[in-house]
Design a binder for these strands. Structure first.
Lengths: 135, 135
DNA sequence: ATTTATATTTGTAACGATTACAAATTTATG
DNA sequence: CATAAATTTGTAATCGTTACAAATATAAAT
């Protein structure tokens, strides 16, 4: 995957910071917060500003190559995977798993006559690892 | 529904403020924000403090008679309906609709071996009213 | 090339929602 | 009625996010 080209295709000029931020999102797939992105890149880009991370993510969202994930009320996370999918967050270890769901199964009866643009499915609980380790 | 009794049953002493806050949640069913609750009750309870609203909602959540709904990243809403259900938010008029969904249809294949405690389904788009009115 | 314009990044200050905390008030207990 | 405990309140602190203007980098024009 050529990131610069991917950005260009979506009408985003591929600056150094933008490439690095998208690269982090896309390769780590860890649904990071702004703070996590900043902390992981500031070593490599010492002049990086948190404002740039905010600006860049907002731009990515506007251009449709990033989405937000808000499982916990107080933390916004970001995701470069744009296919419809849900998230499971383990309340014990904090890990976030991507889960597939069948879009048409989710309440579509109730929404006849409505125009659906976006669906988010969030599940919380304990992951199998934490269950076997009794965390 | 006797609210004082409902609170007592859940180990919450039914103070005046708590009763009024729960009553608002339960009767309006409008998924209000803290601010909306405060603004709607301060007329009737002039000494009411926003901190009390926060404290009270946190208590309700701890005791399991209220849940949070975070459809938009930047606003937490509260709901006294505890049955599993999802929410549709109209991006045009802002109204929030409750929607039913079949729990077992939502990605349960993927979560074998996981312990599911909580599921949230959020859908955004335009409601039928706004579509016919071309809002 | 050099200047000029435009876009991007950066740092600081401002903002708003939430929380911490201690004083004031209310309710329960002896 | 006095004392203790619980609840409410107001203020200040905190944290994530945004506004804004200066600084820097990139592109376009001469």
């Amino acid at each position: 995957m050529n990131i610069a080209q991917h950005l260009s295709t979506h009408d985003i000029k591929p600056s150094y910071q933008r490439i690095k931020i998208y690269e982090y999102l896309y390769e780590k797939m860890n649904h990071p917060t702004v703070d996590l992105i900043y902390k992981n890149l500031v070593g490599e880009i010492p002049t990086l500003s948190k404002t740039t991370v905010y600006n860049t993510l907002k731009l990515f969202i506007d251009k449709g190559i990033t989405s937000t994930v808000t499982i916990e009320d107080n933390e916004v996370r970001y995701d470069a995977i744009m296919d419809a999918h849900g998230h499971f967050k383990c309340t014990s270890c904090g890990a976030i798993y991507d889960i597939k769901y069948d879009f048409k199964d989710v309440a579509m009866n109730e929404l006849k006559g409505f125009e659906v643009k976006e669906t988010q499915v969030h599940v919380k609980g304990k992951c199998n690892q934490c269950l076997t380790n009794k965390n």
